[in-house]
Every structure is written in C-alpha cells, then in structure tokens.
C-alpha cells in the first residue's frame, strides 16, 4: 500500500512534466485546430535561449522572463511567416511544415549549442521535498507552476475580452469575423502563447532530463498522450491527463514486471490510441450539445 502511494507521488512528479507540455499542446490546438509536431522543439529551443542568457550572466528570473517574451514573439513570427501563407492548404501540407520546422529547430540548436548534454539550473533547488526521495523540491515547484498556469489560462479565456475573442475565432472563424474579431491575429496570439507556455515547460523540464537538442522528443509524445487523454479542447483536462499519464506510466513500470523502463513509451502511445477509439473527446473535452 505504501509502495502504491509512493509510486503515485512519483507519477505526479513525472506527470508535471507532461502536464506542462500538454497545456502547450492544447493551447495551440485551440488556436489552429492541429497538433503542432514542432511544439517540443520550439520548447527546447526556448530553453536554449534561457541557457544562453544565463551564460551571458543574466540572473535566472530575468532570463526566464526574457525567454518568455522572445518565445512569444517567435511564436507569432512563425505563424505570420510560415503558417499564415499556407492557411488554406490541406492538412498534409501543414504536417510537412511542422516536421520541417521540427528538423530545422533541432539541427539549428545542435549547430549553435552542440549535442552534448548540459545541466540546467532549477529555481526551486533539487533537494528532496520533506526528506522524501520520491519528489524533489523542483518537481513540487513544477506541479505548482503548472497549476498556476492553468488558473491563469482559465481566467484569461473565461473573463477577458481577448480570451473570448480567441475562443470565438477558434470555434467559428466566419462568425467571429462578422462580429469584427481579427481572426488572423487571434491565431497568431495563440501561437505566441503556446510558444511561451512551451518555453516554461522546457525551462522546468530541463533540470530533470538535462538540456540537449533531443530532450523533448519523447516528452512531446507524452504531452500529446496527456492532452488527448484529458481532451484536446480543455486546458484543465490536459493537465489532468498529463498527471494521469505520469501516474499510469509509473505504476505500470512498477507493478507489471514485463514493462519495465523500456516499454514506458509504448504505454503512452497505447493510451493515445485507446482514448481515440473509446472516448475521442477525452476525459474533460467538451461534447457539443446541439439542436438541429
């Protein structure tokens, strides 16, 4: 019983990583209706920017905020320069561009900062929390930041006019234009916010998995799994999904002996397939009630 509790705690700790990434995934999905396969590399690149700023001697929080700003601007720029022109192109063109973006960011990061593994500081420290070896102060901090981010997004989308406009632009672009919402800019804003949230995820993940250009590849898959499990339309669902993926992964690795470390990733993939087959809207995704 105690082992179960400990493994759940450890699962929450890893789940925080996925939850944070899943949040970024949902953010962009809301804005553009696609999964962004380059999301992980964008987050990785942002983390390298933070790394570089600190290397130049900026204090942690200044580097953190500056990175968010740069990432936001970068996200907006990617939309304006790359995706706006192909807006009406078929989905496959988008997928190809996502993959190209992924490859470009990955190799550019490798070119500038090389592929050696780098350590990355944590603002919360790496001491074990309350003497427990299962969750460190950093991981607890991550859980906290993820939940804070969630509250921020909830308030933003529910209570601000620009949040309302963004939801309208995503749900029904034609009607949104007819009430004067500048739909194109709302999409760009969605990209900017997703990039900034991705940057937060990357910066928080890097102290755990270490910084290198490939750090996000499997994490993005877990993030997708979390987002799909929780429901791609729900930020709260994505966070819940992220934590659940972390917990399931840990429990399966501990209690089903054949799984062990190597088969953890397939579990995430199986989870994605299972959710898509049995409950495509996810745990908290919105099922549309509509009268015809």
């Amino acid at each position: 019983m105690e082992l179960l509790g400990q493994q759940i705690l450890a699962g929450i700790a890893t789940g925080a990583i996925y939850a944070c990434m899943a949040l970024a995934v949902v953010m962009i999905y809301q804005a553009i209706d696609h999964l962004n396969f380059a999301q992980g590399e964008m987050a990785m690149f942002s983390t390298f920017i933070a790394f570089q700023l600190m290397l130049w001697g900026l204090p942690y929080w200044i580097a953190f905020l500056l990175t968010l700003a740069v990432s936001f601007a970068g996200g907006v720029l990617i939309d304006r320069v790359v995706f706006k022109p192909i807006h009406d192109a078929p989905i496959l063109s988008h997928v190809v561009v996502f993959i190209a973006l992924l490859a470009i960011l990955n190799s550019t990061a490798g070119f500038i900062w090389d592929f050696t593994v780098k350590s990355f500081p944590s603002p919360f420290g790496s001491a074990p929390l309350f003497g427990s070896s299962l969750i460190s102060a950093h991981q607890a901090g991550m859980v906290g930041v993820t939940l804070l981010l969630l509250v921020f997004l909830f308030v933003f989308f529910r209570y601000t006019r620009i949040g309302l406009s963004m939801r309208a632009a995503a749900a029904n672009p034609v009607s949104a234009r007819l009430v004067g919402v500048r739909v194109g800019w709302m999409v760009a804003l969605g990209w900017g916010m997703a990039a900034a949230i991705g940057a937060i995820a990357g910066i928080l993940i890097a102290p755990v998995v270490f910084l290198e250009p490939n750090m996000m590849i499997s994490i993005l898959l877990y993030g997708f799994a979390g987002a799909v499990l929780g429901g791609l339309t729900s930020p709260a669902g994505a966070v819940l999904g992220g934590f659940l993926v972390g917990i399931v992964e840990n429990l399966a690795g501990t209690f089903i002996p054949v799984i062990g470390g190597e088969l953890k990733l397939p579990i995430a993939l199986m989870l994605i397939v299972a959710v898509l087959v049995f409950k495509p809207s996810g745990l908290m995704g919105r099922t549309v009630v509509q009268r015809v």
């Binding site: 749900a171 009607s175 007819l178 009430v179 004067g180 919402v181 549309v288 509509q290």
Partner: peptide
C-alpha cells in the same frame, strides 16, 4: 447571416458580448 452564425459552444451571454467586440 444565413444559418444564424451562433457560437454554439459558448453561453448565450458570451454570444452577446461577442457582438460588442469592436
């Protein structure tokens, strides 16, 4: 518009707020 252009997944009052977006 034809078809009414309702933001179906949003609340009634949110639909009205959207009308005043500009």
């Amino acid at each position: 518009p034809e078809g009414r252009g309702t933001f179906t997944r949003m609340g009634v009052e949110e639909n009205l707020q959207l009308g005043a977006m500009t």
